[in-house]
Design a protein around this nucleic acid. Structure first.
Lengths: 260, 260
DNA sequence: CAGTGGTCTAGACCACACT
DNA sequence: GTGTGGTCTAGACCACTGC
């Protein structure tokens, strides 16, 4: 049918070294097309996408092929299937697992035995990217970025101190006020207000000792070891959109991880 | 065809509370049958399982149904598909990612810029399970367990101190000598010598300060914060078969994790 | 070349949610 | 009942591996 695998003219540029087989199955191409519609905002977070049959006829392929494409997107947490209802664009809001990317859990009691976290914005200002911030966000040194510092508390005890950096352009208009007023996951606000959906992230974890300021903000005694969690979060197309450096108290909590 | 969904007589025991719909699709049942063959050792780690067509005729279902069952097992890292060759039972040996469950990576350089880890068995003895060890391994307090302590070094620098506990029965005959001589991942040895394949694991991570002994074994200055990684590893049927408590130095390494 | 997994199709039917 | 995703089948063909 509409196989796009026709080998394009092999460009004779010097960079073209690898003999790429350049075969991709139909369902991968469909996956790409669906992804484009997600990026372009044709279907927004929380909304339903067209039915499989509808997409099949739009793309001129069988329902099974669309199914396989959607299957992969769903297993990557980009889409959510709901039997009998439809397929929906995943969102950080209204997702009963409220903090999907936060892996800190209390040692005892259920996952939300502590109720919702209290948030306090400590600081929020615009500045110019240093070299390491720029590198993480795929910007240039000196580009405008937004820096936010906040403290999360559980059951009244300050537990997480986070610094985060956002590229200035996509987040024009984000203020401390807006962050303070908003109730719900920060990533949900990013979706609704700025059209930025975080899709995946990578974390690097270390054990560190806090400096004086950090120690003070977390109200922790001198020499208390803390978990340092550095996260880079990505939107569609693997564009980095946030750098976050967190310090977690782990006397009564732990970072949980499943291996398989 | 051979749908096993025939509702069995609902047992009228008092425990039978939930009105379980008790419907499971054919491919899930096939998945269960394949799992049984894996557990029973009919197909051993590293070996190939019968072809899809063969399994389809054995189970009297279509190839597509077998495919879906295998797909799920493969995405759970129990099986490995190799196009043109066959489907193989996953193994911790000869798996080019040598340490599949070790998430510690050097800060700079490639993943194996340091070459293989040096292993040193510090201690290995049989003893009786304490209450917490027993709970983690689904044993009773006082049951025999094997305790191993070892140090892993990268590029000559001691980096990981691990204590691990194994249920005494399945690991009868495991000695310090055997562990010292063996080159390769410990889980590979478990497979070949004891028929125990680790399938998945859960980790709880904290920041801690080492005690005097630990500090000494890792040759680390006083007050150095370390990553505490507690792991429970499971075989088929979610039976816990290992409790491991690791201390990681993170001055030049980090625990990496991908979120999605 | 034969055998394996991988893709694609078309059609039938089931389970679930809503109206 | 209608429409959605979910399961199952049967058959054709493609891509990869190794003889």
């Amino acid at each position: 049918m509409n196989n796009l695998n026709a080998m394009p003219d092999t460009p004779s540029g010097a960079e073209n070294l690898a003999a790429t087989p350049a075969f991709s199955p139909l369902y991968q191409q469909i996956k790409g097309l669906i992804l484009q519609s997600l990026q372009s905002g044709e279907w927004k977070p929380g909304e339903s996408i067209p039915s499989e049959i509808e997409l099949a006829s739009r793309f001129r392929v069988s329902q099974g092929t669309v199914r396989k494409a959607i299957d992969e997107l769903a297993s990557g947490n980009l889409l959510v299937r709901r039997q009998g209802k439809g397929t929906y664009v995943a969102t950080h809001a209204e997702q009963h697992v409220q903090y999907r990317f936060l892996k800190l859990a209390p040692d005892t009691g259920g996952l939300d035995s502590e109720g919702p976290a209290q948030r306090e914005i400590v600081d929020c200002k615009r500045l110019r990217a240093t070299a390491d911030i720029a590198r993480a966000l795929a910007l240039r040194s000196g580009d405008p970025v937004l820096q936010v510092r906040r403290v999360l508390s559980f059951a009244g005890a300050p537990t997480i101190l986070e610094d985060l950096w956002l590229p200035g352009n996509p987040f024009k208009g984000l203020t401390a006020e807006r962050l303070s007023v908003y109730h719900g996951p920060m990533y949900a606000l990013f979706e609704t207000e700025f059209g930025v959906r975080m899709v995946r992230a990578e974390e690097k974890i270390r054990a560190v000792l806090p400096d004086a300021t950090q120690q003070d903000l977390l109200r922790v005694p001198l020499g208390t070891p803390l978990l340092s969690v550095e996260r880079v979060a990505y939107t569609y197309n693997d564009t980095p959109m946030e750098l976050r450096r967190g310090l977690y108290r782990t006397e009564n909590h732990h970072y949980r991880n499943a291996l398989s």
